[in-house]
């Protein structure tokens, strides 16, 4: 079983990006490609071949689900598992994201100290 290594992270909030880098790169030891928004991701992500996509839902211009749908059209991202991260935690919103095929929806604020472990266990569940 392949361990979780490369994560494509799409988020428009610079502060949260910083926190996330600290959590996932420093703490979790993952290889992170951070994109500022959907358009940025479509431009930068190809070739990165991530194991997992971590996508913020609310973003200006192209929102998370649309970004994922767009990336899915590329072969490289067609089957890449997605974890959404959102501040909108109303059940119907979560349900909608699950319908899009997300393996998990993480609500903001998340626990930066335990997030790497959480992603690892999600990964194990998904691939195992």
């Amino acid at each position: 079983m392949k361990p979780l290594k490369r994560i494509l992270y799409i988020e428009d909030e610079i502060d949260i990006q910083t926190v996330m880098r600290m959590s996932l790169e420093r703490l979790g030891g993952f290889e992170l490609l951070v994109c500022n928004n959907g358009i940025d991701a479509v431009a930068k992500a190809p070739g990165f071949a991530p194991d997992l996509m971590l996508v913020d839902v609310m973003m200006p211009g192209m929102d998370g689900p649309t970004t994922v749908t767009t990336l899915r059209t590329m072969e490289e991202f067609a089957t890449t598992p997605v974890v959404f991260i959102t501040a909108k935690v109303q059940p119907h919103e979560v349900a909608r994201l699950r319908e899009l095929g997300a393996i998990d929806v993480i609500s903001k604020p998340f626990d930066a100290m335990t997030l790497p472990q959480h992603l690892q266990s999600l990964w194990r569940l998904h691939t195992g």
């Binding site: 502060d15 949260i16 926190v19 600290m22 959590s23 420093r26 935690v89 930066a112």
Partner: peptide
């Protein structure tokens, strides 16, 4: 509710995350 929740949570995410780390 959704928006307020989002708008409040977003800065809190940064604050909380930073503090935790």
């Amino acid at each position: 509710v959704s928006t307020v929740s989002h708008e409040l949570r977003t800065p809190l995410t940064s604050i909380n995350g930073s503090l935790e780390l």
